[in-house]
Amino acid sequence: MSDHLQVAIRFERVSRHFGEVKAVDDVSLDVLDGEFFTLLGPSGSGKTTCLRMIAGFERPTAGRILLHGVDVSHLPPYERDVNTVFQDYALFPHMTVGENVAYGLMIRKTPKAERERRVGEILDLVRLTGMEGRRPSQLSGGQRQRVALARALINHPRVLLLDEPLGALDLKLRQQMQLELKAIQQRVGITFIYVTHDQEEALTMSDRLAVFNHGKIEQVGSPADVYENPTSPFVASFVGVTNLVSGEVAQAITGSPLTFSVRPEKIRIVAPGTRFSQDECAVDACVRDVIYLGLYTRYVLSLDVGGELIVVQQNLNTTRNEALAVRNQPARLIWSRSANRYLSEPGETV
């Protein structure tokens, strides 16, 4: 990581063990000031534990966590300049929206007049103007989400932590909130650490992301980088959909037994016997299944050399009937050799 950029959060060989379970296992990581950084991974991969260690709800078993250069590993949450948006929002049910949002300021004994002004401002920012007097129970899920965001942002933390904050919302609202969150982050310029298991969410919002698996970070990079150049089979299959080809099938296709990944959208389905060039891979197959999904069609093909590939094609000119008609037909699959990503299996070098 380049040193002239300010590091907001640094994990130095951090581990968190719960008894025998290594929730977080020797993680090192730098998050830059002002970044929208996503911790992506399946449940139980350690991403939430990492977030909770930044917040101070958990303490590392080993290693250090630095917040703007200061070791905070063993500071309680109330002494850290970070705020959290909780997965269940954690709004105080016995307080109004206004009291919830003003809670941090009230604790810090900010004068009442200033408190009210800032609550008004922040509610404007999250588009809840005039909702001060409502109770959390009177709000919809999306509104609660915004209150939780406002309650955290009003304190101007140096880092904002978000623990799957959109998980409980429906798809449309989630997509809208993703864009809104990103816009708010750019406006306030605070570092956002965002935990999610939803790779699409991660790709939509993040400046950079870290892919977690079994308590370790598998890859860190920009969304495009991680999608285009996955460094492990896990990353390749977790971020987006992919075909992992290995062993004899790989040998038959590329002439080498190295495992490689090829994205379904990179592969073309053409008539059997179609000619292909030197820098292309080709394999003969039979269409086993066609799943018509409106925007695109997903084909599952059994390869003549064994195994199967998934191919996705946008329905540019294809009608539904045309798409479905290729079922059980022989076909040839062609894709550019440069679309192949060779992956190192554990203990194996490329």
Binding site: G56, P76, P77, Q87, A90, I107
Partner: peptide, 17 residues
Amino acid sequence: PKSLIEASGDLGARPGQ
């Protein structure tokens, strides 16, 4: 919920508060 207790601490409240 435990998260309410955590949220309070997260917003700067000492355990007594």
